[in-house]
Computed example of a mutant assay.
Amino acid sequence: MTLDPRGPRFSAALTTVVFVIVLLTGSGWLALVQAVIFAVGAYDPRLTPYGLLYRYLVAPRLAPPVEREDGAPVRFAQAVGLLFTVVTVAGYLSGVTVLGVVGASFALVAAFLNSAFGLCLGCEAYLLIKRLRPAQ
């Protein structure tokens, strides 16, 4: 699967907004919704609500992408986002607010870096792990 690289950046922008709201409100339930979105994205980023919005509302208004990117690093990044978001949900819903704030803050930074600068930390981690693994 290959992706238009602008799609994950669009999704990251929406995710940034969600995590700002989570941090401002302390809503573990909103974080839970984001966790479900990450879970879907770990399977196929094109199937998330954000991916569908991009595909059907945003992409038709843009020029075709100059290049496409492999979907595997993006799926891995979505799984990493899911991990941080599960920590966020557990923190907020269990009353350990500091855990929720820390998880949401890490997720917010990662989403912001991707949306603003195109730096996908999860994608970079995927590529580093792939390079460090012994040849099979």
Rank of each mutant, 00 (worst) to 15 (best):
M1A: 03
M1L: 07
T2P: 04
L3N: 01
D4M: 01
R6H: 11
F10Q: 02
F10G: 00
S11Q: 12
A13V: 00
T15M: 06
T16R: 12
T16N: 02
V18M: 14
G26C: 10
S27Q: 01
G28Q: 04
L30A: 14
L30M: 10
A35V: 06
V36F: 15
I37G: 08
I37Q: 10
G41T: 00
A42G: 09
Y43C: 05
Y43G: 14
P45F: 09
R46W: 03
R46C: 08
L47A: 13
T48C: 13
T48F: 10
G51V: 07
G51C: 08
L52C: 06
Y54S: 11
Y54W: 15
R55L: 12
R55D: 13
R55P: 10
L57T: 10
L57W: 12
P60Q: 12
P60C: 06
R61V: 08
L62I: 01
L62E: 11
P64K: 09
V66D: 15
V66P: 06
D70I: 03
A72D: 14
V74P: 03
R75N: 02
F76A: 02
A77P: 00
V80D: 07
V80G: 05
L82T: 01
L83Q: 05
L83W: 10
F84I: 04
F84G: 00
F84K: 00
T85E: 10
T88H: 05
V89K: 02
V89N: 02
G91V: 07
Y92D: 03
S94D: 09
S94T: 04
S94H: 04
V98H: 07
V98T: 09
V98Q: 12
V98L: 15
V98K: 06
S105G: 08
S105L: 02
S105E: 05
F106D: 02
A107F: 11
V109Y: 15
V109D: 13
A110F: 10
A110H: 14
A111N: 14
F112E: 07
L113W: 09
N114Y: 12
F117V: 11
F117Q: 12
G118Y: 12
L121K: 13
G122Q: 08
G122F: 04
E124A: 15
A125N: 12
Y126D: 05
Y126W: 08
L128N: 08
I129R: 00
K130L: 11
K130Q: 13
K130W: 10
R131Y: 02
P134F: 13
P134W: 14
A135L: 14
Q136V: 15
Q136K: 15
